[in-house]
Every structure is written in C-alpha cells, then in structure tokens.
C-alpha cells in the first residue's frame, strides 16, 4: 500500500499539470471579457487598452506558462519569505487578480475563515448526523424512522438551497428576528457574547447546508448497509452468538463504508469550493462567492488559481479514499 501511495503521488504531478492546462484552455475558450461588467459609457478603445494592460494581448501559451511560473515559483517563495523573513521572491510577479489588481493568494487567505466556519462545519455536522440516520434507517428498514428519514432527506435534497435559504431568512430573520440576515465577515470572536453572535449568524447557513449534505450521505449509508445486512457473513456472525451491536457496528458498518467514504472524499474538496448559492443567499462572501464573482467578471487568474487548488484537493482526497478502501477491506489490492 505504501509503494502504491508513493506511486500515485508521483503520478499526481503530471496529472495535475495536465488538468491545469485543460482548465486554462477552457477558461480561455469560454466566451467572456474582463471588461463586460463595466458601464457601457466606457468606450471600446478604452476597453481594448484595459485588456492589453491585463496581458490579454499575449498568446495563450505565454499566458499559461506565466501563470504556471507565478503559481508554482513566485507564490511558494513568497510564503517562504513571509515565514522566514528572506527575500527570494523580491521583484517576482505573483498571481494577480484582474478585478482587484492584488495577489490572488491574499484574497483566498482572507476568505478561508468564513468558508471553513460555515461550509466546513456544516459538512462535519451533516456527516455526523447522516451516519447514524443511515444506519438506523437500514437496520429498521420500513419503520416509521426510516420513512421519515427518507421523506426529510429527499425534501432536503430536492428543494434547492436558493429557496430554503430565503425561507429561513423570511421566517427567522424577518418575522422572528432571531438571526441576522447578513453575515458579518469582519466579526471577531473575542468574548462570550461575540461567540454567541457568531453562532447566531452561522445558524441558518449551517443548517441549510448540513441538511443538504446529510440527505445525500444518509441515503448512501442506508443503501450500503442494506446490501450488507443481507449477506451470509452477518448470519454467520449472529449464529456465532455475537451481540447485535458488534455485528452491526463492527462488521456490517465496516463493510458498508466504501460508498460512504467515496462520497465523503468527494465532498471534502467542495468545502474549499465553498457553497456558491448558500453563501450568496446569506451574504457569507466566502470562497464560493469569490469564485462565482470571478467567473462573472472573467477574472481568469483568480478562477484558474481557485480551480487548480480545488483540483489538487480532489486528486488528494480521491487518493485518500483509495487508501481507505484498502484499510476497510484488506482484500482490495492495487498492485
């Protein structure tokens, strides 16, 4: 398994370079223009000048190599410099956003806290409630618990967050006044009251997202548990006199985890991607909002950098999932 992991990690480098190239070409091909959002009163000649100043006059491969150099050399050196106070990156151009004309990495760092708080927490909560729901629903198939679980999770998944979010705002922010409708990203948690406020402003977006995540994961958990509960080894284990708890939580659960691990591993990178719609509904302004505004503004360096980091996480977590398969089921071998 160790050699497999090392081999996959090495293979990830060319894979990621290839993915970054494809993303760049896709963004270049996509229709759009960084000056599209400017007022129409700005004349075409000025727009052309703006495009040139952004480096759009260069051929696509030059722009790609430039981005690669900035992202793989200048950015890491800059991080090194700020950590150790050295000056290797002096005079090196970092990846600069077209909208803000400032380093992309700084803005991403600025957006991380709210995204991790809201999207990350909701993923953790979603997973934590989904697993027991899935297990109980499968163990007591067609019980009232299972039926209600199915109903809630299907509604949670099929009713889009642009609706549930607004509904919550109308009920809890407008009518009841319990929670703020606008997330304050400048809020600093430095006291108990500040913490309470933070919990209040996170409550609604976390609820919406956790419901959505839990719906999905619990369905996979349930289906996979059902498959395994009917297997022969379960009967054997019971016949051997093992307690029901051991049978279900040790044997069946372990063997049922493969699809669930896959889904969770696919879900973790999306935390970094942020939740575009939920962030917009609750004005969280995290990474999802950053990505969508960058796409609309055709801010290619920003979109490219965000998507590439996303790609790195996807490759990494899919590798983690593959390694976990081997641990959950030692019969799985890759070499």
């Amino acid at each position: 398994m160790f050699t497999y992991t090392v081999r996959r990690l090495l293979l990830a480098i060319p894979t990621l370079l290839f993915i970054s190239l494809i993303i760049f070409l896709l963004l270049d091909l996509a229709p759009g223009d960084p000056t599209a959002q400017l007022p129409l009163t700005i004349p075409p000649e000025v727009r052309e000048k703006i495009r040139e100043s952004l480096g759009l006059g260069q051929p696509v491969y030059v722009r790609y190599l430039l981005w690669l150099k900035q992202f793989l050399v200048a950015e890491p050196l800059h991080v090194f410099d700020t950590m150790f106070g050295t000056g290797f990156a002096d005079g090196m151009q970092r990846v600069i956003s077209w909208q803000t004309r400032s380093p992309v990495a700084d803005i991403i760092a600025q957006r991380m806290p709210q995204t991790l708080w809201v999207v990350g927490l909701s993923y953790v909560i979603g997973t934590l409630i989904a697993l027991p729901i899935g297990i109980i629903s499968a163990y007591r198939q067609y019980s009232w618990f299972d039926q209600i679980g199915a109903l809630v999770s299907m509604i949670g998944y099929s009713v889009p967050t642009f609706f549930t979010g607004v509904l919550l705002i109308v009920v809890f922010a407008v009518n009841l006044g319990w929670f703020p409708s606008i997330y304050d990203t400048t809020h600093v948690v430095d006291s108990w009251d500040a913490f309470v406020f933070q919990v209040r402003q996170m409550a609604m977006p976390v609820f919406v997202l956790a419901l959505y995540n839990a719906a999905q994961i619990s369905r996979f958990m349930r289906a996979s548990m059902l498959d395994n509960l009917a297997q022969d080894y379960v009967r054997t284990a019971r016949a051997k006199g093992m307690s029901e708890k051991v049978v279900v939580l040790l044997h069946v659960l372990r063997n049922s985890m493969i699809p669930v691990v896959t889904v969770i591993a696919l879900g973790v990178p999306t935390i970094f991607g942020g939740a575009i719609i939920t962030e917009q509904v609750f004005k969280v302004n995290g990474l999802g909002q950053l990505l969508i505004t960058a796409i609309y503004a055709n801010d290619i360096p920003m979109v490219q950098t965000l998507t590439f980091i996303f790609a790195v996480l996807i490759v990494l977590f899919n590798l983690i999932a593959d390694v976990l398969y081997g641990m959950l089921d030692p019969r799985i071998r890759y070499d």
Partner: peptide, 8 residues
C-alpha cells in the same frame, strides 16, 4: 449578462 455585454 457577462457574455452578452462582453466584447469577446
């Protein structure tokens, strides 16, 4: 809008 008003 970003395509329609874009000069691409």
């Amino acid at each position: 809008a970003s395509v329609f008003f874009g000069g691409d």
